[in-house]
Amino acid sequence: MAQVSLEQVRKVYPNGFVGVDGATFDVVDGELLVLVGPSGCGKSTLLRMIAGLEDISSGTLRIGERVVNDVAPKDRDIAMVFQSYALYPHMTVAENLGFGLKLRGASKADIASRVDEAARVLELGKLLDRKPAALSGGQRQRVALGRALVRHPQVFLLDEPLSNLDAKLRAGMRVEIARLHRQVGATMVYVTHDQVEAMTLGQRIVVLKDGHVQQIDTPMALYDRPANLFVATFLGSPAMNVLRGRLVRSDGLALDLGDGLRVPMGEGASVPDAWLQRDIAIGVRPENLLPATAGAGAFHSTIEMIEALGNETLVNVRVGAQTLVSRMPPRELPPPGQSLPLSIAPGRWHAFDAATGERLAPTG
């Protein structure tokens, strides 16, 4: 396996559109790194540049110690798994797994050994004589993974490999990919638009927006300390609540939403004087928006919808003109249209500049 290093990698198309702008990061040898962001953010373009399927306009790309900017895809020692399985329908699973090795002139014994190894790792042993039409979607994706695995490449590149599967199969395949990574210790770069996949699979995550890297960190560091409002609201389900107003000191710190509405920021909360009387965005995760008894530290909301999910309840509420979601354990709640007192867990909120969206500082 090998490390992948990008230094100020840029992609500019002939019409002047900048697909990726100055991406700089390392994928450590043996790491599973996820590129995540909304459609059009540049994540697949970045992966295709690593693969050699897109030219690099400027910057430097290394795989191992070698600069590969001008190296052909077949000579980069990478294997790629695409969104479509791209299996040969007339071939058996075993033939599909070994076909790439056959084209490279590998011996029959070597092909058989590597196919058996991949079948064992991916639990495909009983399916080797079947053709793709006789496989489920999850089984086909495992064959696609196996076809990459038999190559013994330095780097695996996976471009939204689970997006064609239903929710249950996606959850199962996430486990399969995580297990495969642990077993083979492979360097993997995984592209997805699904923040749940990113959070559950990635050892580190690169968050992209409009071709720019927004933040690179471990899943929980991104969740707990997002660098800006985009990262804060993109990662997490339901998304982080964002309240916009002005911080004031009135019987403790509070967020003034206007029209006489104030949201207490929790016991002991304090901020620099420079944060007061300025437009600010306060982020609160749904699990940190708590049911409360009326009184000090509480604010009133109006229930709009209740999503009872069995193990938890998501309560959609309105505070003035702003909508929020609270995640709480199953409990009896007033019906929609009724008032529900809430409070913010002490210290469990995030402050962002209302204009730029950048994180201001650690919370109080």
Results as ranks from 00 to 15, higher is better:
Gln214Met: 14
Val115Pro: 07
Pro132Gly: 04
Gln214Asp: 12
Ala144Gln: 04
Thr187Tyr: 07
Ala178Asn: 10
Ile177Phe: 00
Gln203Tyr: 03
Arg225Ala: 13
Leu135Tyr: 10
Lys131Arg: 15
Ile216Cys: 13
Val189Trp: 08
Leu128Met: 14
Asp194Glu: 03
Gln203Ala: 12
Pro219Trp: 08
Gln195Asn: 11
Ser136Gly: 09
Leu135Thr: 02
His152Cys: 14
Leu222Glu: 08
Met188Asp: 03
Gly146Asn: 01
Thr218Cys: 11
Arg151Cys: 04
Lys168Gln: 13
Lys209Gln: 15
Gly172Asn: 13
Glu197Asp: 07
Arg170Met: 05
Pro161Ser: 05
Gln215Arg: 12
Arg170Phe: 11
Lys126Gln: 15
Gln215Met: 06
Lys168Tyr: 07
Met199His: 15
Ala227Asp: 10
His152Gln: 15
Val207Gln: 07
Val155Gln: 04
Arg179Leu: 01
Leu149His: 13
Ala133His: 11
Arg140Glu: 01
Thr192Leu: 08
Tyr223Ser: 03
Thr200Cys: 12
Arg120Ala: 09
Tyr223Lys: 04
Arg130Asp: 08
Asp194Met: 06
Glu117Met: 12
Gln139Ser: 12
Leu169Val: 05
Arg182Gln: 15
Arg204Pro: 00
Gln215Lys: 11
Asp159Cys: 00
Glu197Ala: 05
Gln203Asp: 08
Ala148Arg: 02
Val143Glu: 13
Phe156Arg: 01
Leu149Asp: 10
Asp224Ser: 12
Asp224Cys: 13
Thr187Leu: 12
Leu180His: 06
Gln203Pro: 10
Gln203Lys: 10
Asp166Trp: 12
Gln183Met: 13
Val150Tyr: 02
Tyr190Ala: 14
Val196Leu: 08
Arg204Thr: 00
Thr187Arg: 02
Asp210Ile: 06
Arg204Ala: 00
Glu197Ile: 02
Gly185Asn: 14
Val207Ser: 09
Ser163Pro: 03
Asp194Val: 12
Asp166Asn: 03
Val175Ala: 12
Ala133Leu: 14
Pro153Ile: 09
Ala167Cys: 15
Val207Lys: 02
Val191Cys: 05
Glu117Ala: 15
Thr187Phe: 10
Met220Phe: 09
Gln139Pro: 07
Lys168Cys: 01
Met220Cys: 05
Leu162Tyr: 00
Gly172His: 15
Glu197Tyr: 04
Ser163Phe: 01
Thr192Asp: 09
Arg147Gln: 11
Glu117Asn: 10
Met199Gly: 08
Arg204His: 10
Asn164Gln: 14
Tyr223Asp: 01
Arg174Asp: 09
Thr187Asn: 06
Gln141Ile: 02
Lys131Glu: 03
Met188Gln: 01
Ala186Trp: 01
Ser136Phe: 10
Glu176Ala: 00
Leu162Gln: 05
Asp166Leu: 08
Asn164Thr: 13
Val121Ser: 12
Val184Gln: 00
Gly185Leu: 11
Gly185Arg: 14
Ile177Ala: 00
Val175Ser: 12
Asp217Met: 04
Glu123Trp: 09
Asp224Thr: 11
Val191Phe: 11
Glu123Val: 04
Asp194Ala: 08
